[in-house]
Simulated scan of single mutants.
Amino acid sequence: MSETSLTNEVEELNLTYLLLAQRMLQTDRASAMFRLKIDDEMAELLLSLSGAQLARLARTNQLLCRFAYDDAEQLRTVTHPPREHNLSGFHSSVIMASHSHLGTATNES
């Protein structure tokens, strides 16, 4: 696969991600902010971007979206067959929420 092809795929993914983020924020802002792990200022900025600005931002050579799991153990926990199959989605949400950059609790002694 050529470098140009990869760059084009990254650009396409970025634009899709940005458009999805805007649609999520327009539909249910609080839920979208939680799922995207962004604060109110970032939400407002994303919503204010025009199509041309989104396209320009998407053309970066880096992925704009971030992998939700910080380490292999988190991914392994979610992807291996759970004991209670009905709880797998809930378990995944709990793991992702516990690593949210918004409102992370700190232990103060």
Score class of each variant (00 low, 15 high):
residue 41 E to A: 15
residue 48 S to F: 11
residue 59 R to I: 02
residue 44 E to S: 13
residue 53 Q to C: 01
residue 55 A to F: 01
residue 40 D to H: 11
residue 62 Q to Y: 13
residue 68 A to I: 00
residue 28 D to R: 04
residue 39 D to C: 06
residue 69 Y to I: 00
residue 68 A to T: 02
residue 27 T to Y: 10
residue 15 L to K: 10
residue 58 A to T: 01
residue 35 R to M: 09
residue 67 F to C: 01
residue 66 R to D: 13
residue 41 E to M: 03
residue 43 A to F: 09
residue 25 L to P: 10
residue 64 L to P: 15
residue 69 Y to M: 03
residue 73 E to P: 05
residue 30 A to F: 04
residue 27 T to C: 05
residue 13 L to C: 03
residue 27 T to N: 14
residue 24 M to H: 14
residue 53 Q to V: 00
residue 34 F to R: 01
residue 52 A to V: 02
residue 54 L to V: 00
residue 49 L to G: 10
residue 11 E to F: 04
residue 58 A to S: 08
residue 59 R to T: 11
residue 65 C to V: 08
residue 54 L to D: 10
residue 13 L to K: 07
residue 15 L to D: 03
residue 20 L to R: 11
residue 59 R to M: 04
residue 72 A to Y: 06
residue 23 R to Q: 15
residue 32 A to C: 02
residue 59 R to S: 09
residue 55 A to K: 14
residue 57 L to N: 02
residue 67 F to I: 00
residue 13 L to T: 11
residue 45 L to D: 08
residue 23 R to T: 15
residue 62 Q to H: 13
residue 14 N to I: 06
residue 51 G to S: 14
residue 43 A to H: 08
residue 55 A to H: 12
residue 53 Q to Y: 01
residue 17 Y to K: 03
residue 39 D to A: 09
residue 26 Q to Y: 11
residue 59 R to A: 06
residue 22 Q to D: 12
residue 22 Q to S: 07
residue 66 R to K: 14
residue 38 I to R: 09
residue 57 L to R: 03
residue 31 S to T: 14
residue 52 A to F: 02
residue 52 A to K: 09
residue 21 A to S: 12
